[in-house]
Computed example of a mutant assay.
Amino acid sequence: MEVLVLLHLVFNSSYKTATTLELIDFVIPNDAIIFIEDGVYNILNDSLLDKLQATTKSIYYLENDVVARGLMPKIKERALINYLDLVRLTENNSQIISW
């Protein structure tokens, strides 16, 4: 996997906390975003995802959390990752921010 500028770990839904929406202002090209835990609910927020995808194509969802929340039908072409992928991404990025 390529080295990225910043890895964003999104734990919360934009429906639960407004700070998740601030992510839009901080993402730059080559950043990666991983939605985990309740953050996978952001797959339901098309407006947020459209804005993020306009900046970066590296948007991932932790598969176990997607399955646990019954969101698999919403995934479509979006990238699922497993725990090993998550570990690799965190190893390859020295700068990580949690949302």
Rank of each mutant, 00 (worst) to 15 (best):
86 L>H: 02
59 I>N: 04
73 P>F: 06
66 V>C: 08
50 D>P: 00
16 K>G: 01
52 L>Q: 04
21 L>F: 03
32 A>K: 07
79 A>Q: 13
11 F>Q: 08
47 S>W: 13
18 A>C: 08
62 L>N: 04
71 L>K: 13
15 Y>E: 15
71 L>R: 13
37 E>P: 00
18 A>Y: 11
58 S>F: 10
93 N>F: 04
65 D>I: 06
96 I>G: 04
49 L>F: 00
67 V>K: 15
7 L>V: 03
1 M>G: 04
9 L>F: 03
62 L>D: 00
65 D>E: 09
85 D>C: 02
75 I>P: 00
98 S>Q: 11
82 N>K: 12
31 D>M: 08
65 D>Y: 07
26 F>L: 15
82 N>V: 04
35 F>D: 01
10 V>H: 00
57 K>S: 13
55 T>W: 05
21 L>Y: 09
23 L>I: 09
34 I>S: 02
81 I>H: 04
36 I>E: 03
46 D>I: 13
26 F>R: 15
36 I>M: 12
46 D>E: 15
30 N>K: 15
43 I>E: 02
84 L>W: 02
29 P>H: 11
56 T>E: 06
70 G>E: 11
56 T>Y: 09
71 L>M: 09
93 N>W: 07
86 L>G: 01
15 Y>K: 15
24 I>K: 11
94 S>L: 12
61 Y>P: 00
95 Q>I: 13
31 D>S: 14
21 L>M: 12
82 N>P: 01
88 R>C: 01
43 I>F: 04
25 D>C: 04
69 R>M: 09
25 D>P: 00
95 Q>S: 07
81 I>N: 03
50 D>N: 14
46 D>Q: 15
40 V>F: 02
76 K>T: 05
55 T>F: 03
57 K>F: 07
93 N>V: 04
18 A>I: 13
5 V>D: 14
36 I>P: 00
35 F>Q: 08
83 Y>T: 05
33 I>T: 03
85 D>R: 01
19 T>F: 13
18 A>G: 08
80 L>N: 05
70 G>H: 12
94 S>C: 04
85 D>A: 01
92 N>E: 10
53 Q>K: 12
13 S>H: 04
39 G>I: 06
19 T>W: 13
87 V>M: 05
54 A>D: 14
12 N>R: 14
46 D>N: 14
16 K>M: 10
49 L>N: 04
85 D>T: 02
83 Y>P: 00
51 K>Q: 10
79 A>I: 11
16 K>P: 01
31 D>R: 11
69 R>I: 05
57 K>Y: 10
24 I>V: 14
42 N>P: 03
86 L>E: 02
91 E>C: 07
67 V>P: 01
41 Y>S: 00
6 L>I: 12
90 T>S: 13
38 D>L: 05
84 L>K: 11
47 S>A: 09
49 L>G: 02
46 D>P: 00
67 V>I: 15
79 A>C: 09
33 I>A: 01
58 S>W: 08
45 N>Y: 12
3 V>I: 11
17 T>P: 00
76 K>I: 05
32 A>P: 00
3 V>G: 01
51 K>H: 07
99 W>Y: 14
33 I>V: 14
91 E>V: 07
67 V>N: 11
37 E>S: 07
1 M>S: 09
40 V>E: 06
59 I>G: 02
22 E>C: 10
